[in-house]
Design a protein around this nucleic acid. Structure first.
Length: 464
RNA sequence: GUGGCUAUAGUUUAACGGUAGAACAGUGGGUUGUGGUCCCACUAGCCUGGGUUCAACUCCCAGUAGCCACCCCA
């Protein structure tokens, strides 16, 4: 028998081209189990054990959004491919090699969003939000997709949250966003380093680009292949090169801050003034250039603070970044609309939070665990759950379980503060036992008063 | 996208060219109405495919996935 299987497989195997690894393996009649599945490369399940980290980050993000006046917006995960081509820029890595794009059944060119700003601007224009009081401030939290090679902190399906303010030129907006994130990250228990730069407006950038290209052209022979290409296609990104041979050229390169026009320089200076005033510590980084084409003027990135010891040669990954994009709305067919925004990587934040051993508030710790014994008690449980819940208590239970031992074991494991025991005897007496899970003491109370008593006990506890 | 390293129960891992042991977790019991300690039992695994070999979890090749560096960025 076993031999037969082998022979069949041997015949089959060569037919399965290595090109199509995901093709369903045809199972011989004797194969017992269907093959199992796993998540796609670079995409992972966020399991219940991770919940506390996600709740922590999500909770802080939403809280800051509320307090700074940013309203939640949700946009579809799927968008027209051209939106990102145009917004992010066809020359960027994100668009040129990392998009999950395909033609849908209707022949439409669509893709999974690689970032959120383009969608928000699209939505702003589509719904005529320029008629709302400006600025219109958005907050988002959701999955993004980039077909990159996965690594720790770099997934193909990952989550970002961010803040975007559209319709306001004032430099205080740039400062507000940086200040907000600065505090948010500190609230998450992270030490961070803010890098900031201004890349000017299209006008002053044009003048600067000429200087930059001239500077680099003289040293063209020393440059790496990528840089030679950048020199022609996207000179700003020359400053982003990490190739060793290109470093000397980079260090001596003219700095854009010296070429900013009056308006851009003024704007940048004011942003920095506001940050100084707010006590945000930052580093000016004349070489900071973002990977998306739509940025103008202020750009910034947030890095984890490198703690002196054992830092590898590698540069730490950015936890988030953003900047002003005054030209984007117009690029996307809207009226000229100044704007500024930021995005943060949730998985990266969580990785860092774990690494730093930040104290995370526990999740799902119920006030009361309900233990039942016997059918009669089980039937009475539902209404008890509701009365407790309506009284504002969190309740837990395992109604399908039988023994009391088992149920208390569960109560203990999940950390319930009190256990409520309801069995045959209690049903007959019209009572219930309240057990203090920490001290092990218990008391019998009238069934009608249970909710009241538990509530009082919990209140007393919190006062302590 | 390029290069390197890795792959054993749910998790963390051990050993071996003659197909595997443990710890934690899970389930059941000791204690049939009382958890956190303890004791016992059970469940459960060599990533996939091919090759070498009398024999492959072990060696070789390929695929897949993870990690690391580059690249890029969140």
């Amino acid at each position: 028998m076993a031999k037969k299987i082998k022979i069949q497989k041997k015949i089959k195997k060569p037919k399965i081209a290595a090109k199509k690894p995901r093709k369903e393996r045809s199972s011989s009649a004797e194969t017992k189990k269907p093959r199992s599945f796993q998540s796609l490369r670079g995409m992972k399940d966020i399991l219940p054990g991770e919940a506390k980290y996600w709740n922590f980050v999500r909770g802080k993000a939403f809280n800051f959004a509320d307090n700074y006046g940013y309203d939640l917006i949700e946009t579809p995960v799927l968008e027209e491919t051209a939106l990102f081509n145009r917004a992010v820029g066809g020359e960027t890595d994100i668009v040129s090699k990392e998009m999950f794009s395909f033609v849908d059944r209707g022949g439409e060119n669509v893709c999974l969003r690689p970032e959120e700003t383009a969608s928000i601007v699209r939505s702003y224009i589509q719904h005529g939000m320029l008629n709302l009081p400006q600025p219109v401030k958005f907050f988002y939290f959701g999955p993004m997709f980039r077909h990159d090679r996965p690594q720790a902190g770099r997934l193909r399906a990952f989550h970002q949250f961010g803040f975007e303010a559209l319709g306001e030129t004032h430099p205080i907006i740039d400062a507000e966003i940086i200040f907000l994130i600065y505090n948010l990250l500190q609230d998450l228990g992270l030490k961070i380093n803010v890098q900031i730069n201004s890349i000017g407006c299209p006008k002053c950038r044009e003048a600067y680009k000429v200087k930059l290209v001239n500077h680099y052209r003289d040293r063209k022979s020393d440059l790496c292949e990528d840089c030679k290409r950048r020199l022609v296609k996207n000179p700003m990104r020359l400053l982003d090169c990490k190739e060793e041979g290109c470093q000397p050229a980079k260090e001596e390169a003219p700095q854009i801050v010296d070429y900013l026009c009056e308006d851009c320089k003024n704007h940048f200076v004011r942003v920095l003034e506001y940050l100084d005033e707010a006590g945000v510590s930052y580093n000016l980084n004349p070489q900071l250039v973002r990977g998306l084409d739509y940025y103008t003027k202020t750009v910034f990135e947030f890095f984890p603070e490198v703690s002196g010891e054992s830092q590898g040669s590698g540069k730490p990954d950015a936890l988030g970044g953003g900047g002003r994009y005054d030209g984007l709305a117009e690029i996307l067919g809207g009226r000229p609309t100044p704007a500024c925004g930021v995005a943060l990587g949730v998985e990266r934040l969580i990785l860092k939070i774990k690494e730093m051993n930040v104290n995370i508030p526990p999740v799902n710790v119920p006030d009361v665990y309900l233990a039942q014994l016997g059918e009669q008690a089980r039937k009475k449980i539902f209404s008890l759950i509701e009365s407790l819940r309506k009284a504002g208590l969190t309740v837990s239970h395992s109604l399908s379980k039988e023994g009391l031992k088992k149920q208390l074991e569960i109560a203990n494991k999940i950390g319930a503060k009190y256990a409520l025991i309801l069995g045959q005897k209690e049903i007959l007496d019209g009572t219930s036992i309240i057990r203090d899970m920490e001290g092990g003491t218990q008391e019998i109370v009238n069934f009608d008063k249970v909710v009241q008593v538990v509530r009082k006990k919990l209140a007393g506890e919190t006062i302590k």
